[in-house]
Design a protein around this nucleic acid. Structure first.
Lengths: 231, 231
DNA sequence: CGCGGCTTTGATGTTCATCAAGTAAAGTGG
DNA sequence: CCACTTTACTTGATGAACATCAAAGCCGCG
């Protein structure tokens, strides 16, 4: 991890429109002066389980995973963290130490703002507080809904979901490079590594996708969506 | 449902300490004047899926379930709603219509405060906003943690969890009356009604619990906890 | 180059859902 | 209040979905 040469100030950051839109110029400036921008290589830990939650960190570029240690060998991956996501730091307002980890699964740029400063602004700027609340509400709703849906799907439906999510939401391309291992896919959607591989092979044999190592090419999006929906 | 003769004003309501502690007297009074208290019989719907989220509703007495229609015949129960819980109304800040239902599973008293008034106070009182955020954060964390844990448990572990939760958290008694049917237990912990019954019978045969219809008596809390932990 | 981690495939076993069928309880209308 | 219908509860038998175990090839890395 290294401190990034800041490419732009908060005023011109795309993230501004998401949360900071209602800030007064002085508030914006306080954040701008206190924040730090970090660059993480793929695989680097952005925030570890048990770390002090001193900063509100959000990702501005790249891709991460929000996860939690299950035991020595396995993680539970809660979900992906994409730019402008607020997630993973929800507990920042109720806990002092992080209950989760966030790890870069692509080269990632993150911004850290001391949580005390955020809290101060919440106290003084109601509109900002409201934005935070709305954002938390939305993010939470999303995770819960996704999780309940995934739980009811069969293995094929879950794999279909992951492929579609990465293809459509993250990379916006039918061909993409899997940012995570088979094992991690398993940890994300609650199945075994072996079955992840098995079902990816089935999809390949059925002509739904092409696989070349980490590279996936979606051939039949329509069918994939049917499998995802049907469960 | 009937409008309840208000038993106390907000100032003396036990709920005050939970969220309203930082309110100024005038704010407290605004809430007190605009709120309505309702009484629900067991089985009555407190908030239906698709209803307008015009009010922030919280339960002050009784027990409810937060649930969502899965299809014609089955619900997904997200979790229980106990007094002083804020849950089920998280989406109130990001949606205009409820994505979930809340139904009384015991005789229940609920308080409804127009959400506009809550939002106004959030805007003007930062401490109150902060309390809301902290509460949301905690509640969300809880649900997610519980759900991830439950998913990894086997059927016996899940049933053990429900029995322990009701016995220890809700009724604080080793003997209690199940507020929900076998089918609803199944909908809460993602299994079939048949298996709920089967495993309850197993627990009875193993001398872990006594069953008389809806009445459950926990005989071996220690073993039950082991089953719950082991999964 | 050898070690550990990731990937892959096959065989086996367990957990659990589904189906079936019957009893008990609870609501409904005449 | 009683026949009727529906809903909840219960048990057993069967099969499908999935985890586990085993074994081998592959790749990166010290």
């Amino acid at each position: 991890m290294e401190i990034h040469t800041t490419s732009y100030d908060c005023q011109h950051c795309p993230f501004k429109s998401k949360l900071y839109i209602d800030l007064y110029a002085e508030e914006m400036q306080i954040i701008d002066e206190s924040r730090k921008e970090f660059f993480y290589k793929k695989g680097e830990v952005i925030c570890g389980e048990g770390d002090d939650l001193g900063n509100l960190i959000y990702i501005t570029k790249g891709l991460g995973k929000l996860h939690k240690k299950e035991n020595m060998k396995t993680d539970q991956i809660i979900n992906f963290v994409v730019p402008y996501d607020f997630i993973g730091f929800l507990s920042i307002f109720s806990e002092t130490k992080s209950k989760y980890s966030v790890t870069a699964i692509e080269d990632t740029v993150a911004c850290a703002v001391p949580v005390d400063i955020i809290k101060q602004i919440i106290l003084s700027n109601g509109k900002f507080a409201m934005k935070i609340i709305e954002n938390m509400s939305k993010v939470t709703d999303d995770i819960l809904e996704t999780r309940f849906k995934l739980n009811k799907k069969h293995l094929r439906g879950r794999i279909a979901y992951v492929i579609l999510f990465l293809s459509e939401e993250v990379y916006k391309n039918t061909t993409f490079t899997m940012p995570i291992s088979r094992k991690e896919i398993a940890e994300l959607i609650n199945m075994t590594t072996e079955n992840v591989i098995r079902i990816l092979s089935e999809f390949r044999q059925d002509g739904i996708i092409e696989i070349d190592g980490k590279t996936i090419k979606v051939l039949d999006t329509v069918l994939l969506k049917k499998i995802c929906e049907a469960g």
